[in-house]
Design a protein around this nucleic acid. Sequence first.
DNA 1: TTGTAAGCGTTATCAA
DNA 2: TTGATAACGCTTACAA
Lengths: 338, 338
Amino acid sequence: MVRKVVTLKDIAKRAGVSSMTVSRVMNGNTKEVSDKTSEKIRKIAHEMGYVPNSSARALASRSSRLIAALLQEYDEDYNPLEDSYTSYFLGELARQIKKEGYDLMIHYVKDYSEITYSLKSWNVAGAVFIGMFDESIRKLQEDNHIPLIFTDSYSTVRSITNVGIDDYAGGELAARHFLENGHRNLAFYGPEVLDNGVVTHRMRGFVTVLREAGISLPLENFMDLGVKDLGAALKRLCSGENPVTGIFTTADNCAYRIYSEAYRMGIRVPDDLSVIGFDDLNMSAMITPPLTTVRQDIKKKAAVTCDLLMKHIRETDPPAENIIMNVELVERGSVRRR
Amino acid sequence: MVRKVVTLKDIAKRAGVSSMTVSRVMNGNTKEVSDKTSEKIRKIAHEMGYVPNSSARALASRSSRLIAALLQEYDEDYNPLEDSYTSYFLGELARQIKKEGYDLMIHYVKDYSEITYSLKSWNVAGAVFIGMFDESIRKLQEDNHIPLIFTDSYSTVRSITNVGIDDYAGGELAARHFLENGHRNLAFYGPEVLDNGVVTHRMRGFVTVLREAGISLPLENFMDLGVKDLGAALKRLCSGENPVTGIFTTADNCAYRIYSEAYRMGIRVPDDLSVIGFDDLNMSAMITPPLTTVRQDIKKKAAVTCDLLMKHIRETDPPAENIIMNVELVERGSVRRR
DNA sequence: TTGTAAGCGTTATCAA
DNA sequence: TTGATAACGCTTACAA
């Protein structure tokens, strides 16, 4: 009982027209077809349960209504969607793209070679890169002549289209907030700086403001995700005669970890240690105490990314744009006045 | 400068064979082609940067190496990937599917009609349903003759292939744990029960164990996501002469909200109020105090889902299976002994 | 082991 | 406003 697929031809036969006419109607080229036949065809198509075959479309037109979202799979054992920032952004992107009538494919990427392969294989209409792809950008652009939108890139390639945020300003905001609240001895926690342009800039903004205030942090106040025992490190920093009283983390996720380790070591937030995060994930308002953080508007970022993508798909040769969105400090309960 | 796409034919010409031979080699039908030509063709294909055209493949073979993940978009304003359970599961699924050499497409679904449309349109090889699709299952199976794997379904349709967990047992575990720790007056918090089979069963397991212990909960101890002021409700429950001392939530996400509102109202967890969650998301070990929760192995669930899907794609007419995975109680710091 | 021929369902192009 | 015809790149089925 193989239900035959309904094709343009079937509809054409039933309507007594050629399949080209049906094709035109199904593509909404309504001005090329008389209203009467158009209406009739639409009705028949509906009755017969017609579903256009995207593969055939893609083959014939050499482009599909498919967008690829590329996620860096840094590590065999790490799932990029564990990160709330990434999953939230991806989710919003998916909704926007659906609204535009496109479908979304997700690709985890380990090797560079995988990227071009999958984009070409599906005649993808455009791609959005989530995560760090800076080193491959030039090559990607050479190999794929479709719109490529990057996010949070600090690549120096000039022809890149990117949506990012003002990371540096975010770092500044955090530093100023600590300063205004009387903190003088601070620390920093995040991924190893070298990996990631975003982290670098957040840190630079932070450090620069402090330096201007005459504060320079000793090297041991910079911790990265690799520290063996974060709790112990925290304990060390927060004791002695000149204890650290505040810590800036490059992501809310990192701040949560600080909360957790601080709790384990009996360090109270914010009484003993104040914390500022980055992103303003949903969880940050719910955690105890609510996290003071540098907020980026992830939803809007996704919308902007999608708009940009559509613009690049529809217009021929639009200029490269680097859109930088603002960030703001959200004061909650994790910074104590000193 | 339109770079011409490399096709089988191009390779064939270069190798002095027919495109069928190349096709066979590219599909790994290595036993049908002599080792020598096979090797030669592979080399040429690589040199020319050949990328198979998935659309053409799908068109010719009437099936693609594409899997669709369908997510319920309950609400215009709600992003399903905000939910950590969903995004984690999806992420793991994506990795598994990639390992199998398939690509993954994500679809947000509002109307039933969208589902069949997108599955057919792309000649998808199979689909995984994440969220509640119970009412449409029968119709989906009639309309789409491809493997459909459901998750967490309590549909009574017998021919369904589903991967779920023992929700009822989870509820029991929570109840027993409260009982063992001397709690007698308990509450429940979760989505409106009617919406969701999963929630119903978690609650039933919970309530049944309590009833067997001679405890029956008043109706006002059952709260759903719709309560106007959760904090106030909590406060009310936790005061009076017979205060509630423990609350079972149907998801860790709900537990986080309880933490947050309790904090706001000055109710201490676990001193005043003990909490048990469900899922064991990453965050649950980090929050303060660490959450005691009913754990499900989401990673494994995704792996099982993918295995089942592949089995149904590769074998003809495999039996419908309903795989139910175990849950376990993870004791951490959110339940106090009384 | 290899090749030929006929599609797969659509769109591009040109003609009517 | 409509139609005929030839692709698009691949696989199926069969023949050599």
